[in-house]
Design a protein around this nucleic acid. Structure first.
Length: 300
DNA sequence: CGTTGGCCCTGATCGC
DNA sequence: TGCGATCAGGGCCAAC
């Protein structure tokens, strides 16, 4: 479940179950799901077994779980198709189950966490926590500034109270690229993927190829407001689910797909002006826009 | 340095 | 029904 709202839904599902939980037994069914882990699967398993999870933190689309009394964390990224499901020893997580974690909750209840991932673009890893210069909470659910080394290059996300709007605006406008590529650059602003980029650009009436250098500070503020509005609304509706692939920790789908204005709506009328929405190739994926209220920018 | 294209994967679905 | 082509919501990194 890739973008910020879907990952936050997962974090909120895991937080009460895993805070204070002990990792009893770990089974790696697909070693490629550990591609971010620096050692072999046995190393991952042995270093993790017996550890206690302290909390559940998210920055952008990355999740991590600091381990009590250590400077390490279990890092989770869902990639394009990852799910984290909660169950018990009788749960059948299906043939796409890649990693299985047996835990005992802080209440003493046995639980099983299933990491399911069709495309194996997602992964789990054990990583060192390093301090950030500012020391402010590193992400949602954090109470200190420590962050996994492998996540430290990821920018804060727009729902983070420490996200710096003015610095973002300056950095964005200094770039020599188009606005959608910039919105998808997790080193500049994190948590936005193809769906919410298209939705925010529709909201701000911006074509995805608009050069960032042409944006005024006021337009960036407007865009940022649209980004936040769409992310928050999606979060309230439990995220976007097109199929059974994008679900919360209990396997349930979100409702935001009903609220989309642009993504996946090619051929249907724009909710704002009635123009027929288009889907166009972009960066080996696709972009969705209204041809009349998101006009193609003039060259230069 | 910043920017960009290509690539990593599997499985569901579509069109012939 | 069979089968190849196409597509999927992400991130990394080599090459420029």
């Amino acid at each position: 479940m890739p973008e910020l709202p879907e990952v936050e839904v997962v974090r909120r599902g895991l937080e009460p179950a895993l805070t204070g939980a002990t990792l009893d037994r770990i089974e790696v069914l697909e070693p490629r799901s550990l591609k971010r882990h620096p050692g072999p699967p046995e190393d991952f398993v042995h270093r993790l077994e017996g550890q206690v999870v302290d909390c559940a933190i998210r920055r952008g689309k990355f999740l991590w779980f600091p381990l009590r009394g250590t400077h390490e964390a279990l890092v989770v990224h869902l990639g394009m198709s990852g799910q984290v499901l909660l169950g018990d020893e009788d749960s059948d997580f299906g043939s796409l189950l890649r990693i299985r974690l047996e835990v005992t909750s802080s209440q003493g209840n046995p639980l099983v966490v299933g990491f399911v991932d069709q495309r194996i673009f997602g992964s789990m890893a054990l990583d060192e926590l390093i301090p950030t210069p500012q020391g402010t909470p590193a992400g949602k659910g954090a109470d200190d500034g420590r962050i996994p080394r492998s996540v430290s290059h990821i920018a804060r996300d727009p729902l983070d109270p420490h996200f710096d709007d003015a610095a973002f605006s300056r950095a964005l406008r200094a770039r020599n690229t188009d606005i959608k590529r910039a919105l998808l650059d997790q080193n500049l602003i994190s948590g936005i993927g193809n769906i919410y980029a298209d939705e925010a650009l529709w909201g701000a009436r911006l074509h995805y190829l608009t050069p960032t250098s042409r944006l005024t500070a006021a337009k960036v503020r407007e865009l940022l407001a649209e980004v936040r509005a769409v992310l928050q609304k999606a979060l309230r509706e439990g995220g976007t689910s097109f199929d059974s692939q994008y679900v919360n920790v209990n396997g349930q789908a979100g409702y935001f797909a009903h609220s989309l204005h642009a993504y996946g709506r090619q051929g249907t009328p724009c909710d704002r002006c009635g123009g027929i929405l288009r889907r166009e190739p972009f960066m080996n994926r696709s972009s969705h826009r209204c041809p009349s209220c998101q006009r193609t920018p003039r060259n230069r």
